[in-house]
């Protein structure tokens, strides 16, 4: 295995992150603060408690997930799409690196960035609400796995995208609605029975639920189900990446 190549890609991507560090971190912090002001204060004053948790705290896992999913997809898709767009992809294709090394480097760097952003939001949230973490190891683990799997998804989108518009499409039209409808800001139990069932088709429900469990020891679905769903999603993404590289789809002519 060409470990140096992984390190080179990872380092090069992190250099890019560092160049744009301010906007990468400031934007999520500001938008999170806005959510707290709007959701926490305006709505929270009427709801007060969900599942025995203060509403302001209740929405934190969902808020972190919202930003982390968007950031993972955006970072990873941009990371691999940009070399394709400007043509420097030739370098990756002609280097003695395997697909595994390319994916590890790019996805690792994108996941690292969104993981850091997730932690920053967590710290920001502590300024607004008291936030217990019931299972810190699980919290970090679920966050890391989520960053990883959605960075994989982003990597796939970056390879498939034919233009910058395409890069924006999936986060805007798919991820964002799924997160909002995935119980980020409410408990599924608040929904009518039919919608409770339909909601279970939304993969983000399992992510948010598992993540919320790591904070409050309580989730919409069991933690085992959540973990299985996250793993299944990760494996599905890995499968697609494997297929893309095996066939060279939209990479090699």
């Amino acid at each position: 295995m060409n470990a140096r190549a992984i390190r080179a890609i990872y380092r090069f991507e992190m250099l890019r992150t560092r160049r744009t560090l301010l906007q990468s971190l400031v934007a999520p912090v500001i938008s999170t603060s806005l959510y707290f002001v709007v959701f926490g204060t305006a709505i929270g004053s009427r709801i007060q408690e969900v599942e025995g948790v203060e509403y302001g705290a209740f929405i934190v896992p969902g808020l972190i997930m919202l930003t982390v999913l968007m950031q993972s997809v955006t970072n990873a898709s941009f990371g691999i799409y940009f070399p394709k767009f400007i043509g420097t992809i030739y370098e990756l294709l002609s280097a003695p690196v395997s697909y595994f090394e390319i994916v590890t480097g790019y996805v690792g760097a994108a996941a690292t960035k969104s993981f850091v952003i997730g932690l920053v939001i967590y710290l920001t949230a502590n300024f607004f609400v008291t936030l217990p973490v019931a299972h810190p190891v699980w919290m970090v683990g679920i966050l890391a796995l989520t960053c990883l799997s959605f960075s994989l998804l982003g990597f796939i989108l970056g390879i498939l995208a034919r233009g910058f518009d395409g890069l924006q499409l999936v986060p805007m039209l798919i991820i964002s609605p799924l997160v909002f409808l995935g119980g980020s800001f409410y408990s599924i139990e608040m929904l009518p029975p039919l919608w409770q069932k339909i909601t279970l088709l939304n993969p983000v429900v399992y992510l948010v639920s598992g993540f919320r469990w790591s904070f409050f020891g309580e989730g919409d679905v069991g933690i085992g189900v959540s973990l299985l769903a996250i793993l299944a999603f990760t494996l599905a993404c890995l499968g697609v990446v494997w297929w893309i590289f095996r066939t060279g789809y939209r990479l090699r002519n």
Partner: peptide, 9 residues
């Protein structure tokens, strides 16, 4: 230096 790293050196 990125290219050198890609080539595993």
């Amino acid at each position: 230096t990125f290219t050198r790293g890609l080539f595993g050196l």
